[in-house]
């Protein structure tokens, strides 16, 4: 084995790597926010909606959770093209990621909502809280706090899974790597660098989420008791 590693030929490309990281972060951030809102709404619909809606949401969740993201990405990308609308690959990537992560968030949030004790909802009813108030103050907040770790893991996985959108040439980190390695012929080095960048990203994202969690869920700090 006489392979000589040469990372220096990648140096001139630092700007492209940085742009890839930035786009990956943007893709994940947008999909996370939209996915969380959509997933929470789906979970409420599934727990409390009319029966037909419950069935529709349930079917949607099952279909998404039992097919690969890659196929979903292709379907969204080509499906939209067939409708005659031309959209940017990055936009298609966000759409596909959101469609995917809404289903997973819905399932996690459902578990959280189910964990809220029925007596609490009845108590809220007795206090004359409206349905919206009950959901916001009594159900959703503790539900989110309980499933927060699971949500964080899911969103870190989403950030990593956004690499799959390189297959429809969304210009995120993996697509940048594919282009650089075909420019420099330094494939192994390029993917080592990108692998390390993803590793760093996953630590940063996880850290950011845990700081955010500490800021948002103050109950534990104030009362010193677990939920």
């Amino acid at each position: 084995m006489t392979y000589e590693f040469d990372f220096s030929s990648l140096l001139p490309y630092w700007r492209e790597f940085a742009e890839g990281v930035w786009l990956t972060l943007q893709l994940s951030a947008i999909s996370t926010v939209l996915g969380f809102v959509g997933g929470a709404l789906c979970a409420i619909a599934r727990a409390d909606g009319p029966p037909w809606l419950q069935r529709v949401v349930g079917a949607y969740v099952e279909v998404i959770r039992n097919t690969p993201l890659l196929v979903q990405v292709f379907l969204v990308y080509f499906g939209i093209a067939i409708l005659g609308i031309r959209i940017d690959a990055n936009l298609a990537a966000v759409l596909a990621l959101v469609v995917n992560v809404v289903a997973y968030t819905c399932e996690i949030m459902r578990a959280g909502i189910q964990s809220v004790h029925k007596a609490q909802i009845e108590a809220a009813d007795c206090l004359g809280l409206t349905k919206t108030q009950t959901y916001w103050h009594v159900v959703l907040r503790p539900a989110i706090e309980r499933v927060y770790p699971a949500l964080v893991s899911q969103y870190v996985l989403l950030m990593l899974a956004s690499s799959i959108t390189s297959q429809i040439s969304a210009e995120e980190l993996t697509a940048v790597a594919n282009r650089i390695q075909s420019d420099t012929f330094r494939s192994f080095e390029t993917y080592i660098v990108v692998g390390l960048l993803y590793l760093a990203l996953s630590f940063v994202v996880r850290g950011a989420f845990s700081v955010f969690g500490m800021l948002v869920f103050t109950r534990r700090r104030r009362l010193g008791t677990p939920l």
Partner: peptide, 19 residues
């Protein structure tokens, strides 16, 4: 768990070629 499977596959694919 911190690297995408896609990158893992590329690394092994090109790594095997190097050895």
């Amino acid at each position: 768990q911190g690297t995408p499977l896609l990158i893992l596959l590329f690394l092994i694919y090109f790594g095997l070629a190097i050895v």
